[in-house]
């Protein structure tokens, strides 16, 4: 395993009198894309600022072995061409003048933005601005790249296209990436490792698929979209996701449809069972509120009673 590019040991961070990050230990290694997930106000951006050296922790240490570039959430571009903007970031970073052109071209190409090179920043759409903003981060070639909600405020199509292009562009064996994400689904597209931050504490740290299938706690499971919850007679909680709940005549659970919401590609169905509530997406025969159905759980996780 490679040496960490950045190490946080026992880091706590205060905003005013309130501690927003508690006793955080974290290693970030080259070649790794780490997604930091959490609800609004969990402390995600605060951690990013501490790793990037923008703020100092109130306790603990942040050790960096290499240069760290932070791509802030707001894509502030100078009133110049796209190429000049990417060049400018490199001049701030200290890249020799002779290397900038090639780096700019490479970074824009990685994000599918080479056709924007001569456009003025003021003429770019929101998605294009985000691409250029990310290209600046790639062009400076830091040892650790920090991205703060790089897809915020985009329409769904632009969002999906940029996530796809970014997932390829971020892969680099020589660079570590820590990306703060608001939408969980983006983490599965981008990251090798997911951190779940709730109330200023990292409550889960692992590979995305592993975390999704085996979350370490009910709290993390609920954050990861486990929206169905049954309680067994001994108090054990059984949590599952809508994707793993199937309406199936051979299912061993009986449920009543309590609500249905028509959506673009089917119906979101809320179910009540004797032991709790479930949710699923249904595309088959038409069902309505009050219908009795049988349900099969493809996968669920169990946690002792709270």
């Amino acid at each position: 395993m490679t040496e960490p590019v950045a190490t946080l040991a026992g880091v706590s961070i205060k905003r005013g009198r309130r501690t927003v990050v508690h006793d955080l230990d974290l290693d970030l290694r080259a070649g790794e894309v780490v997604a930091l997930l959490g609800p609004n106000g969990a402390g995600k951006s605060t951690i990013l600022e501490a790793v990037g050296g923008i703020i100092e922790p109130s306790a603990g240490t942040v050790t960096r072995h290499g240069r760290v570039a932070t791509v802030l959430q707001s894509p502030g571009l100078a009133s110049r061409s796209v190429r000049a903007n990417v060049d400018l970031a490199q001049s701030w970073w200290g890249v020799p003048r002779g290397e900038r052109r090639a780096r700019t071209d490479a970074a824009l190409a990685q994000l599918g933005a080479e056709h924007l090179a001569r456009r003025q920043a003021a003429a770019l759409s929101g998605g294009e601005r985000r691409r250029v903003h990310l290209a600046r981060g790639l062009a400076v070639r830091p040892d650790l790249l920090l991205l703060d909600e790089p897809f915020a405020g985009l329409d769904p199509e632009t969002h999906a296209a940029l996530v796809q292009d970014t997932s390829t562009a971020l892969r680099d064996a020589a660079r570590a990436v820590l990306v703060v994400l608001h939408q969980r689904a983006d983490a599965w597209a981008l990251a090798d490792r997911v951190l779940v931050l709730l109330d200023g504490r990292i409550l889960a740290d692992g590979a995305p698929d592993d975390l999704l299938r085996e979350p370490p706690s009910a709290e993390v499971a609920r954050f990861l979209g486990y929206d169905g919850e049954l309680v067994e007679p001994d108090g054990t909680r059984v949590l599952t996701r809508a994707a793993w709940v199937h309406l199936d005549e051979a299912g061993d659970l009986e449920a009543t449809v309590t609500r249905e919401l028509r959506m673009e590609d089917g119906v979101r169905v809320d179910l009540a069972t004797a032991r709790g509530t479930l949710r699923t997406f249904h595309r088959g025969t038409r069902i309505g509120t009050g219908d009795r159905v049988r349900v099969r759980l493809e996968h669920a996780v169990r946690f002792p009673s709270d």
């Binding site: 791509v71 707001s74 502030g76 571009l77 009133s79 701030w92």
Partner: peptide, 25 residues
């Protein structure tokens, strides 16, 4: 744009470069 100046600082721009950027913008 506050984002532009903050971003310049985040990339390690020195004070005189931030001043020149601000004057130009």
């Amino acid at each position: 744009s506050e984002g532009l100046i903050s971003q310049a600082r985040a990339y390690g721009a020195r004070r005189h470069r931030i001043a020149l950027l601000a004057l130009r913008e």
